[in-house]
Nucleic acid binder design. Structure first.
Length: 951
RNA sequence: GCUCGAGUGGCGGAAUUGGUAGACGCGCUGGAUUCAAAAUCCAGUUUCUUCGGAAGUGUGGGUUCGAUUCCCACCUCGAGUACCA
């Protein structure tokens, strides 16, 4: 009987589906006395793209599946769900091109994904599947949005609170004592003033405090996509998707006040088990810097310029100030004589795209405004310049320039011949600025002279606060996140506009379903696609969506709904909680279910989400925690980033301008153009199937193929990202068909460390496949290869097998705990080789082995488990525990060396003490020979390891 | 530039509280089986070698009886980030 993986795998997949083997139990449905500790293993859910899965996609899923299955064997109630992040741009773009509804294409893609995933034998609990584009799901995304709308951030208590509580505070004491995250330009008002405001005025003010608010923001506008992009959706100045250019544009947008959470997002990184590199990129992204905010008064003017500096101790080194060209005060302070120059400069830098400005770091440019500020301490005039090395978006958009201490200020001063004052003791600033901190002594600085950096820092902040010129401040790079997208295929905002003010629709009316539109493009007036929806007004009284004709004025009580939709990260920021209670219609997750499952114990996914999804998800979790909806403050306890599996592309080389293709080794110095070849047309020895190639690319049907001496045409190879357009995609279905899902799973793990990027190479798969065949043979040792496992064993015939088994249990268990799945596959191979060599087919050995191997190769394990006479699935079998007694070795080869030089090895008993080992070694003939009568100065003995003799 | 990570055979990679470097797999070589092939099994496979050995984990130093592992400097590659005041 051969190892017929196709038949076995299909049969067991059917069994698992029919028996709902992997269904996780929620607390209510767990019988008394059967409670198990919980464990939640989650994958980053996929966006179902039209291209289907390639072998790179399942890598993380296989790893998490191994861990989930392992935890089940270990006696945990495991939640291991899967779903789809099904809102997104590709489906929409496809819809624009073909007119097909994105819901339809998404549905088809999901079907295909599911088929592919099922073939690999994952232990997902599909009864909990979520789709972000499903109204039952996005109902709660909208609900959370409303909660954010109804909340504000209190720095005093350091948490989000209900907006109604803020209203109470305002009406009792005004806003002067409230420490809230809000727009900078909110003006102070008293309780009396507040109570006298009209309700519209009140709403207008409250909007500035809400955790999601409308603001006129300069956004990244992509004309081709017709939408706004977040900073992290832009790579190198072009859109991440499509690579279209991006320009700056002012728009009214919904924003998320994530900046209020900056400090907590930073501090709590210490509480979670993520890789240091990932934490580091979040720290960088949050970008905390401590310093002082200092106000500079402008001479002969009522204006003041606030600046932020991390080095307020260098304030006496200020010789000029620089504002970003976009700074709002520039227009107001520029003197008539300088107006022309300044405006020319502003126009020039506005023309430069963000990209050009970034690329052009070296060029120093700027203009003098003609205005002077007053130094807060010396009262000396400080000339005010503008320069595009100062960014409008960071800090206050203005800096106090200290050329002696900052290289950019130094370069700027040199370029425009501005004075440079040295305020550091013993620092040479003739060539470049001095940026040393620790131990630096300040000089030439009035009350700061003679103080060390740290002392000066404290002193100057004290002095600034005393004189009212400034205060100590912490600045963050983290910006509020723009939350509006001018797209169709996303969650509609549950918001309508009444007299220009946003109002949430009542939560009992949710979901606000995505309306139908004829086209998925923005309207002719430049409104988002939802502007095309016929029924897209809110009837306040009847609480329903109604249609209003284009040229008609809406009737009384009917208001226009928000036309934007939410970004991709809205649905993915909280999905982990929905899996806990996916069918609940009363709430997004019941308290009971959430408190049982808490949060994700193990999260596996790509590191590309470091500053997007993973940060937003932490933000929403903290918010929902503050408002009492969640018991946890962090979504993911432990996080592992799986590395990408790369493709190995193949190339043919076309002689420039001719229809001649040269084999790889004949290219030499010829001018050739490499052309991608579909990898399925190339065999393991890099030989091209020429006829197949001609059929595939008919334009080369007449081409001349110049082959190697042996008559073969060899292709060139290169490792690249796996992608359809590079024709290097390897499909997991084909691998499952030819080798089986178990082979695929083990081979993906065997390729290398989980977190490392590695190229796919189908050729190596035979090693793993042979291993599984050998494993099969261990259990099928009957005369004609039929199933045969000894239930009893001849005397003395099992000792070796048990040793091998327990060694394997120990190593594999350790490897799984450390996520070193690659080495555990090697351990299995050694185990099976040793058992084969010992002809060991006793049940005591093979039965635990089947359980041990089940997380990696679940189908074959189930088959063997059933043949061993078990009626229950192997999934519920207890994980074997190793016994020390089988691991003890009685003797070991000790390397014996003299003065560090290895000379020979000795077989020594492990029971011996250090002294006994010394004696035995010294008594050995070879030692005596080497010492030739001399007494060793010192002997180093490490029991079980080495003996070193120093002469 | 800064931050983090990594450099080991023809290839993927293994080994770190410092202790026989190259496990395991691929590939390759030889053999068995076969009319032949596939499949399977067995043996070998870091390099050099005068067959005694010697060298060897990116380079150069250091600590140590002993370093792939620890320390210093440099080189290369990868990831993230970028005029952050």
């Amino acid at each position: 009987m051969n190892y017929n993986f196709n038949e076995i795998e299909a049969r067991w997949q059917k069994y698992w589906a029919e028996n709902q083997t992997f269904k996780a139990k929620n607390p209510g449905s767990i019988p008394k006395g059967e409670e198990l500790p919980k464990y939640y293993v989650l994958d980053m859910f996929p966006y179902p793209s039209g291209a289907g899965l390639h072998v790179g996609h399942p890598l993380g899923y296989i790893a998490s599946d191994i861990y989930a299955r392992y935890k089940r064997h270990k006696g945990f109630n495991v939640l291991h769900p899967q779903g789809y992040d099904s809102f997104g741009l590709p489906a929409e773009q496809y819809a624009i091109q073909t007119g097909q509804h994105p819901a339809l294409t998404t549905e088809n893609n999901i079907k295909r994904y599911r088929e592919q995933l099922d073939k690999i034998g994952f232990s997902f609990d599909w009864s909990r599947e979520v789709r972000t584009s499903n109204p039952d799901y996005y109902k709660w995304t909208q609900w959370i949005f409303i909660q954010l709308f109804e909340s504000w951030y209190d720095y005093e208590q350091d948490k989000s609170r209900a907006i109604s509580e803020l209203e109470e505070i305002f009406s009792a004491e005004g806003n002067t004592r409230v420490k809230a995250a809000c727009d900078d330009e909110v003006e102070d008002f008293s309780a009396e003033e507040w109570n006298a405001f009209s309700s519209e005025e009140k709403q207008r003010i409250l909007l500035k405090y809400r955790l999601t608010y409308l603001a006129e923001t300069e956004v990244n506008w992509c004309p081709q996509l017709g939408t706004v992009l977040a900073n992290d959706e832009i790579v190198n100045g072009v859109s991440e998707r499509g690579g279209h250019p991006v320009i700056r544009k002012k728009m009214t947008q919904w924003s998320m006040r994530i900046s209020a959470f900056a400090e907590r997002l930073l501090q709590d990184l210490d509480k979670i088990d993520w890789t240091e590199s990932l934490k580091e990129s979040q720290r960088n992204w949050i970008g905390k810097s401590e310093g002082a905010q200092i106000k500079f008064k402008i001479q002969n003017s009522k204006f003041k310029i606030p600046v932020f500096s991390t080095r307020p101790d260098t304030i006496f080194g200020v010789t000029f100030m620089t504002l970003a060209p976009e700074h709002e005060l520039v227009q107001k302070i520029t003197t008539p004589e300088q107006k022309e120059e300044v405006e020319a400069y502003i126009a020039a830098s506005a023309k430069k795209s963000e990209r050009e400005r970034m690329a052009d770091v070296k060029t120093i440019s700027g203009a003098f405004t003609g205005a002077y500020a007053e130094h807060p301490f010396t009262k000396e005039p400080v000339p005010i310049w503008i320069g595009d090395y100062v960014l409008a978006g960071y800090g206050t958009g203005a800096v106090m320039s200290v050329p002696c201490g900052d290289q950019r200020d130094y370069d700027f001063a040199r370029h425009f011949d501005l004075p440079i004052t040295n305020i550091f003791e013993n620092a040479d600033i003739s060539e470049e600025a001095f940026s040393g901190k620790e131990g630096t002594v300040i000089a030439n600085s009035d009350f700061l002279s003679g103080l060390e950096y740290k002392e000066a820092l404290q002193r100057v902040i004290l002095e600034l606060e005393k004189t009212g010129h400034g205060y100590g401040k912490t600045n963050y790079r983290l910006r509020d996140a723009v939350f509006s997208r001018q797209r169709y295929w996303g969650e509609p905002f549950p918001i309508y506009y009444k007299k220009g003010l946003p109002h949430p629709i009542p939560t009992h009316c949710l979901p606000l379903e995505l309306p139908e539109v004829e086209k998925y493009l923005p309207t002719e007036e430049g409104e988002p696609p939802l502007g095309r929806a016929e029924k897209w007004h809110w009837d306040e009284k009847n609480e329903k969506v109604v249609a209003v004709e284009d040229n008609e004025k809406p009737p009384l009580g009917v208001w226009g709904l928000e036309l934007n939709t939410m970004p991709g990260w809205a649905g993915s920021s909280w999905y982990l909680f929905r899996y806990m209670d996916p069918h609940n219609e009363e709430t997004f997750v019941s308290k009971e279910a959430q408190q049982y499952w808490e949060n994700v114990d193990l999260y596996i996914g790509g590191s590309e989400h470091a500053t997007g999804h993973l940060l937003y998800s932490r933000f929403w979790t903290k918010f929902l925690h503050d408002r009492g909806f969640l018991s946890v403050e962090e979504p993911f306890k432990k996080l592992i980033n799986q590395g990408m599996i790369l493709g190995t592309s193949a190339f043919v080389y076309r002689l420039e301008g001719e229809n001649v293709l040269l084999s790889k080794n004949l290219v030499g110095k010829n001018n050739v153009q490499p052309i991608h070849v579909d990898v399925s047309l190339v065999n393991a020895s890099d030989e091209l199937d020429i006829e197949g190639f001609k059929k595939w690319r008919p334009e080369f049907a007449e081409a001349k193929f110049v082959t190697e001496e042996d008559g073969t045409y060899k292709v060139g190879r290169e490792v690249e990202k796996m992608s359809k357009s590079k024709y290097n995609v390897v499909n997991p279905d084909d691998i499952c068909e030819n080798y089986g899902a178990d082979t695929l799973r083990m081979y993906e793990m065997f390729l290398g460390p989980l977190e490392q990027a590695k190229p796919w190479n189908t050729a190596g798969i035979t090693g793993v496949h042979n291993f599984l065949k050998k494993l099969w043979k261990l259990y099928h040792s009957g005369p004609d290869g039929e199933f045969l496992v000894e239930t009893s064993h001849p005397s003395g015939g099992i000792e070796g097998g048990l040793k091998t088994l327990h060694k394997t249990i120990k190593k594999v268990t350790e490897d799984i705990e450390n996520f070193s799945f690659n080495t555990s596959v090697s351990t299995f191979m050694i185990c099976v080789n040793e058992l084969s060599a010992q002809n060991c087919n006793q049940k005591e050995v093979l039965e635990p082995l089947a359980v041990l191997i089940a997380p990696y190769a679940p189908h074959i394990a189930e088959e063997l488990w059933a043949k061993l006479g078990h009626s229950e699935s192997v999934v519920t079998a207890a994980y074997p525990v190793y016994e020390e007694k089988y691991l003890v070795e009685s003797t070991k080869n000790y390397p014996v060396s003299f003065n560090g030089k290895m000379r020979f090895t000795m077989e020594l008993s492990l029971d011996l003490s250090e002294e006994e080992i010394e004696k035995t070694v010294l008594a050995d003939e070879r030692t005596k020979n080497y010492l030739s009568g001399k007494t060793p100065k010192k002997m180093i003995v490490v029991p079980g390891k080495i003996v070193n003799i120093v002469i």
